[in-house]
Write a protein that binds this DNA or RNA. Structure first.
Length: 276
DNA sequence: ACGGATGTTCGCGC
DNA sequence: CGCGCGAACATCCG
């Protein structure tokens, strides 16, 4: 569930579930989610506090809790399969629930993550926005917008294919494999093109493509956004991602092809997105 | 059953 | 030193 739009929706559902509700109990299994070792602090500091707000920077969630002993900050990255889910306390925990916040009144908010690529860290609340992981991020398309001139200048400095460069969180925060793929389709640019060889106009089209793909995702109902995690009963909402072999939805003549670039699969229309 | 999957990080080689 | 690449992390699904 993890690119910018999905993380933005996670932030919004966490606000709805947690705001104002005091935490009765916080539990976490000894997994690699707490790489930095904050598991015991998580269990000790959160009970008695309540959520003050949820922030998002790229794919990183930042939760602020206020309690009797001061403010506590949580950094949460969902990795590839991380997800926050809300359940009544009477229900069985969902599969792969490793962390949970039990609320006064009975509800439980679980963090599930089968592959455990996600990450949770406990910090002082005041430190959250100054954490190295946050400072390392490039502009967030939703919070900061994309300046095409700046993006063009940054892309000019790398020798990587444009598709690989767009996945660099220091270049743009929150763009992942799906939205990079969709943005390049919008822009009509082959994913294997050298980033440094793109014109200003082409980079401007990529910026528009990122905005358009993310706006389309954010406009969908929450439960449809992470379609891959919904058991397949929601259709693929993307134009080319995961559509290799299908007809191009734009030109109706090309076929969607797949190529591995920078270790990740890229889907593109061989007719609309030429290798140049 | 084999291969690939929304992400990040580490080690290696140039 | 810095960049780019492949592997590793752990599990599920088709």
């Amino acid at each position: 569930m993890p690119e910018l739009p999905e993380v933005e929706q996670a932030a919004s559902t966490l606000r709805r579930w947690l705001e104002g509700a005091p935490i009765a109990r916080a539990r976490a299994a000894p997994t690699r989610l707490f790489r930095a070792g904050g598991r015991l602090l998580f269990q000790r500091l959160l009970p008695g506090s309540r959520l003050e707000g949820v922030d998002r920077r790229g794919k990183i969630l930042l939760l602020s809790f206020a309690g009797a002993s001061g403010k506590v900050g949580l950094l949460c990255h969902l990795g590839m399969t991380g997800k926050w889910v809300h359940r009544p306390s009477s229900a069985d925990p969902p599969a792969h629930a490793h962390v949970r916040l039990e609320l006064e009144g009975g509800a439980v908010v679980h963090y599930t993550d089968p592959r455990l690529f996600g990450r949770i860290e406990v910090h002082r609340d005041a430190d959250l926005l100054a954490l190295p992981a946050v400072l390392a991020l490039g502009p967030d398309p939703l919070l900061d917008g994309i300046d095409p001139e700046v993006l063009h200048a940054r892309l000019a400095k790398t020798r990587r294919p444009v598709k690989a460069a767009l996945l660099d969180q220091a270049l743009l925060a929150g763009v992942g494999n799906i939205y990079a793929t969709e943005a390049l389709f919008h822009a009509g640019i082959h994913p294997g093109r050298a980033a440094s060889g793109l014109s200003r106009a082409e980079v401007a089209r990529i910026a528009v493509g990122i905005d358009a793909a993310m706006a389309a995702a954010l406009a969908r109902p929450v439960e449809e956004i992470a379609y891959l995690s919904e058991g397949g009963h929601v259709g693929n909402p993307f134009l080319v991602y995961d559509r290799a072999g299908e007809r191009c939805p734009r030109c109706k003549r090309g076929t969607i092809e797949a190529l591995t670039i920078g270790g990740r699969t890229s889907a593109f229309c061989g007719r609309c997105q030429r290798a140049g």
